[in-house]
Computed example of a mutant assay.
Amino acid sequence: MKSLANKLNVFCWVILPFIICISFESRASDSFNLGDLSEALQAGKNVVVIVNSSRCNNANSGGTTPESISGLRINSFKIIKNDKLLFSDMHQGISAKGNATFEYIRYTYSANKELKLHIEILETGEVKRIVDLTCAVPGGARFVWQ
Rank of each mutant, 00 (worst) to 15 (best):
L85F: 00
L86P: 03
L86D: 05
L86H: 06
F87G: 10
S88P: 05
S88F: 00
D89A: 15
M90T: 09
M90I: 08
H91L: 15
H91G: 14
H91K: 11
Q92D: 08
G93D: 04
G93K: 04
G93Y: 02
I94K: 10
I94L: 13
I94D: 07
S95V: 03
S95I: 01
A96Y: 00
K97L: 11
K97C: 06
G98S: 05
G98Q: 03
G98D: 05
N99I: 02
A100S: 09
A100V: 05
A100K: 05
A100C: 07
T101Y: 06
T101G: 12
E103G: 12
E103C: 13
E103Y: 02
I105N: 14
R106G: 12
R106F: 13
Y107L: 05
Y107R: 04
T108Y: 04
Y109G: 14
Y109Q: 13
Y109E: 12
Y109T: 12
Y109D: 12
S110Q: 08
S110A: 15
S110V: 08
S110W: 04
S110M: 12
A111V: 09
A111C: 10
A111S: 14
A111E: 08
A111G: 12
N112L: 11
N112P: 04
N112Q: 09
K113Y: 07
K113E: 13
E114D: 08
L115Q: 01
L115C: 08
L115S: 01
K116W: 02
K116E: 13
K116I: 08
L117F: 05
L117G: 00
H118D: 13
I119T: 10
E120S: 11
E120P: 05
I121M: 15
I121L: 15
L122D: 07
L122H: 02
T124C: 11
T124D: 14
G125W: 00
G125A: 09
G125P: 00
G125E: 04
G125R: 03
G125I: 03
E126R: 07
E126I: 10
V127G: 14
V127I: 14
V127P: 09
K128M: 13
K128N: 12
K128A: 15
I130P: 01
I130V: 14
I130G: 10
I130N: 07
V131M: 06
V131G: 03
D132G: 04
D132Y: 04
L133W: 00
L133Y: 04
T134M: 10
T134C: 09
T134A: 15
T134I: 11
C135Q: 03
A136S: 12
